[in-house]
């Protein structure tokens, strides 16, 4: 009547998103969404001077952080959508535009992680993800606010700053944050066990 031992081992290969993966991603992103909401106010004040672009990377931070924590396909997109969702809920003036931006930015980051087969969690990959997310937002800007009609020096400065900011804030800072969280030990909850962990069950030293 019992459950054979073998059945337990089949579970090693589980890769899909579990409920806990999604919940952690969404909750972390919602927290970011709240930060964004207040960030948005600061940000708008800086807008006329374009200084806001240097902080733009904050908007992609949820995507890279969620990936660095969960390390599975799909979380970057979910994270950006979730963060946008909470902003919409709070009655942000940007409305549904945010969901659109979230989707494209998340997709940008996701592509970079996918290019490294979701196995690379280094600063460089995270920075690249932040930069590509910035490119994603740039594409939407064309449609949304005719940015190609800006003076070209400004156009270059604006998006140069944005990409840099994406790499620094969404890349470097989020890697630091993920490492700080790792040190607290909570991320152990999120990591799947390796086959080495299974082998340790039969380790003669324990016998």
């Amino acid at each position: 009547m019992g459950v054979p031992v073998k059945e337990n081992l089949e579970l090693q290969s589980r890769k899909g998103l579990r409920v806990s993966d999604i919940l952690v991603t969404v909750l972390v992103s919602l927290v970011f969404g709240i930060v964004y909401h207040f960030w948005g106010s600061v940000y708008s004040l800086l807008k006329p001077f374009q200084a806001d672009e240097l902080l733009y990377g904050m908007w992609f931070a949820a995507a890279t952080l969620a990936f660095l924590l969960i390390r599975k396909p799909g979380v970057a997109i979910i994270a950006e959508l979730a963060a946008a969702h909470v902003e919409v809920l709070f009655g942000s003036g940007w409305g549904l535009t945010l969901l659109m931006y979230g989707l494209i930015q998340g997709l940008g980051a996701e592509l970079v992680f996918a290019a490294f087969r979701y196995r690379n969690y280094s600063v460089w990959v995270a920075a690249a993800a932040g930069a590509v997310a910035a490119l994603g937002s740039m594409v939407l800007d064309f449609y949304y606010s005719y940015t190609d009609d800006l003076e070209s020096w400004l156009f270059i400065a604006k998006y140069g700053m944005r990409i840099l900011s994406g790499a620094v804030i969404a890349g470097l800072l989020m890697v630091l944050l993920a490492k700080a969280l790792e040190r607290t030990g909570v991320t152990a909850l999120l990591r799947p066990a390796s086959s080495k962990d299974y082998e340790a069950l039969d380790d003669p030293r324990h016998g």
């Binding site: 019992g2 459950v3 031992v5 337990n8 799947p192 066990a193």
Partner: peptide, 16 residues
Amino acid sequence: IPKATEVPMKCENRQL
């Protein structure tokens, strides 16, 4: 364990 939370385990017999 191990369905919802993955923790390495084995047993000779289990009756859920």
